[in-house]
Amino acid sequence: MKSLFKLLLQRLALGVLSLFAVSVIIFLAVGMLPGDVAQAMLGQSATAQTVAAFRAQLGLDLPPLTRFGQWIWHFLQGDLGTSLANQRPIAELVGARLGNTLSLAALAALVSVPLALFLGMLAALYRNSWFDRLLNTSALSAVSFPEFFVAYLLILYFSVKLSWFPSISNLAPDASFGEVLERSVLPVATLSLVVIAQMMRMTRASLINLLASPYIEMARLKGISQSRIIFKHALPNALAPIVNVVALNLAYLVVGVVVVEVVFVYPGLGQLLVDSVAKRDIPVVQACSLIFAATYVLLNTLADVLSIASNPRLMHPKG
């Protein structure tokens, strides 16, 4: 158990380290701007006075290390700074939107994970059948489609032609749960389609890999039935790769929402990020980036931790 514990600890430490590195990069990215940030943002016509005032407002007159320390310290306390565009606290802007984005991603995950795993297993079991080929070709196509293409196709059919769902998912703050659900259908469907295709392909590949191993052949030669081979011999060993696939795709989901939110005008974090990038509202961009990146790092770390923990060689060490 000692080596397992050590590995897990190492992986967690690596996660914390990447989180730190990510925050440094996000912080430094602003400093990469050639010349002076404040000057560049205000344009050439700004007077020296305005620039100086702006620099003070950004805190650019402080040494970088102090600024970084302050930024992180405030961030950890929930103070994300102030937006340049409308002078409102970023925490206020982010708050509700973060919830919206997470619930959108969660809904998509809820739909796609079971479906993708199920389809992936079926495809692996009946590999090279017409079913597998059909599934594979459709998945390959779905992976290749840009999200906005899928989104607009869905809008064209389900909201314009059939009028089943609204094409725009802007939520009123007092929207009822049913309303929220109805407005989320198309965004969730868009997100799920791409993720399902991705996840299904990966599940299929790792299962096929597994089914080719000598201990599966041995199980066949021992007269074990097909269903028992799948559930008793293949699945316990497939756990690690499948967990990995799921977590990777969840991480993708969190990022993939950006485009979908813009298409459906869904009031989420992604849209805020895109708007802020267009307005060059750097403090907001930094805050949103950090939130997205942290979620991504967390999910990736979780995936690795789970796959380490489900390795039988590490669960039952020699000795």
Binding site: S18, V22, I26, V274, V277, A293
Partner: peptide, 17 residues
């Protein structure tokens, strides 16, 4: 470390700057 940041976010961040 570079891969620890999602690509789209990284790109948006840098492009905004």
């Amino acid at each position: 470390i570079l891969m620890a940041i999602p690509q789209l976010i990284f790109a948006l961040l840098i492009l905004s700057v």
